[in-house]
Design a protein around this nucleic acid. Structure first.
Lengths: 239, 239
DNA sequence: CGGGATCCCCCGAGATACTG
DNA sequence: CAGTATCTCGGGGGATCCCG
C-alpha cells in the first residue's frame, strides 16, 4: 500500500489518510476560519516548514479540500480557500477540539494561542441553547495572549470571527484560569478576583457569555470518566 | 517543539498530537469495538509493523487511552482495553468516519473490510430516529467480504457487535453497490436485482434496515456540495 | 516582500528476522 | 503469543536560496 494509505475500505481509514498527515488538521482549522494567504498560514502555524506547507496545500487541493486563487496585484498574492467538502469537516473538527480541550490545563512551555485556534475553540464551545431569551445583540471581544477574536450573539445565532471589532459591549482578557470559568468550575462573580479574566465594559454580560460558551472538563486522574461508567445507549453500545 | 507536538495551546492541536500518529486512529477504532489482544490487533490491521503497534500501544497507555492487562494462561496473553477517556472519542471518530465514507465508492485495489471497520461503519451510520415504532426486537447479520457483524434493533436502541449471531431474522450479504442502498440512491425493492445485497431470511425486514442505517453521499464533482451553498448557521458561521 | 523551491540531515515508519 | 532487534528508506524539520 502507498505510504499514506491503510489498505482498508473504511471511512475512518480514508479520513485518516488525509487528516493524519502532520500539520494537515491545523491547516484545515485555519482555513475553516476563513481564506488565507500562504504567509498568513505560515504566521498562524509557528514552526511549520514552508516546503511542508506547500506540499500539504497541493495535496489538499488534489483531495478537493482546498482551492488556490491567484489574486491580482504586485507582488502577486495567492489565496487558499476551504471547499464545501472541507467545510463538512467542521462538526468532526469541533468534536476533536472539544475532546482535546477537555484535558488541557495550562499551556506547555512555549505554547501559543493563535487567532485561528481561539476562534476554533470558541466555535466548538458555542452552545446556542444557552442564549438568554432576553438578548437582542451583544458583541464581545476575547483576548488570550496575543490572540483576538470577536463574538456576536443574536437571538438564535452565535458568530465568532478573528480579530478586533469596534464598539464591543464587553472585552474579556483571558487569564491563567480562564478555562475554569468556561468549565463551570468558577462562578462568574468570582472570576475576576480569581484571575480567570479581566473585563472592560459591561461586566454584567459575563454571565451571559459563560452561558453561551461551555467546555467540558475531563478528570485525568480517572482516565476521563466524569459521571460514573459510560452507560450503553450513550453512544449505542460501544465498548 | 518535540516531534509530535505543535506548540499551540489548542484542543485540536492536542488531539492531533495523539491521533495524528500513523495507525493510531485505526488502533483506537478497533479497541472501541472491544478489548483486543496484540495478535487480534495485528490481524485487524493488515500491514501494521508489529514494532510500531507495540510502540503505539505504549504511547496510548501513557496518554491514558489504553490499559494493558495480563491474562492468566500459557502461553501468556495480554489484553488491551480502551479507557473511558478513549471512549469519549467515539462521537468524534463517528463524525470522521461518516465524513470519510461520504466519498467512498468502490474499494481501491487490495482494500479489505475488517470486522472492526464494519462494526464502526454501522455504528456511525446508526440512526435511532429511524427505528419503526412497530419493532420489538430484530436481529440482523451483515457480511461484507470476509467481515461479519450482527445488529440488534430494539424499541429505542441499536447495538452493533462483531461476528456471527445465532438465529438472525435476516442475513445481508453486501454486494458491490451496497452503499448506494444505504445512501438512499437505490430503493430496497430494487436492491437485490441491482446486486447491492443478497438476502437470507425475512427479506421484508430490509426496508427497516435501511431506515435505521443511513450514510451520506457527497458528490465529488462539486467538492462535496450537495444541497446548494452552505448557509451560515448550519454550523455557526464558519467559512 | 510574498511565495515558494532546494538542500541536507535525521527521525520515524516499513519489512523481516528472531526470542522469551 | 507477544513482542524485540535490526536494517533500510521515505518523509519531516530546518535553513537557505530563488524568482517575480
Amino acid at each position: 500500500m502507498r505510504s499514506r494509505e491503510y489498505g482498508q475500505f473504511c471511512g475512518l481509514a480514508r479520513a485518516a489518510e488525509v487528516l493524519g498527515q502532520r500539520w494537515t488538521l491545523l491547516i484545515l482549522r485555519d482555513l475553516l476560519v476563513g481564506p488565507r494567504r500562504f504567509s498568513d498560514l505560515v504566521t498562524g502555524l509557528p514552526g511549520i516548514p514552508t516546503n511542508l506547507l506547500s506540499t500539504r496545500l497541493r495535496e489538499l487541493e488534489g483531495d478537493g479540500l482546498v482551492t488556490r486563487e491567484l489574486q491580482a496585484g504586485q507582488p502577486r498574492s495567492v489565496v487558499y480557500r476551504a471547499t464545501p467538502r472541507a467545510r463538512q469537516l467542521a462538526p468532526a473538527l469541533d468534536e476533536l477540539g472539544r475532546w482535546g480541550a477537555a484535558t488541557m490545563r495550562k499551556p506547555r512551555d512555549g505554547e501559543v494561542v493563535t487567532d485561528a485556534s481561539l476562534v476554533a475553540a470558541l466555535r466548538a464551545a458555542a452552545n446556542p441553547g444557552g442564549i438568554p431569551s432576553t438578548i437582542r445583540k451583544v458583541v464581545y471581544v476575547v483576548r488570550s495572549g496575543t490572540a483576538i477574536a470577536h463574538v456576536t450573539v443574536r437571538n438564535a445565532s452565535i458568530t465568532v470571527e478573528p480579530g478586533e471589532c469596534p464598539d464591543p459591549d464587553l472585552v474579556l482578557v483571558a487569564g491563567p484560569n480562564f478555562r475554569d470559568l468556561l468549565a463551570g468550575e468558577l462562578e462568574p462573580d468570582a472570576a475576576v478576583d480569581a484571575g480567570a479574566v479581566a473585563l472592560h465594559g459591561d461586566d454584567k454580560l459575563l454571565a451571559e457569555f459563560v452561558a453561551v460558551f461551555r467546555v467540558p472538563y475531563a478528570d485525568p486522574a480517572t482516565n476521563g470518566d466524569r459521571a460514573g461508567p459510560t452507560t450503553p445507549g450513550d453512544h449505542l453500545a460501544e465498548g
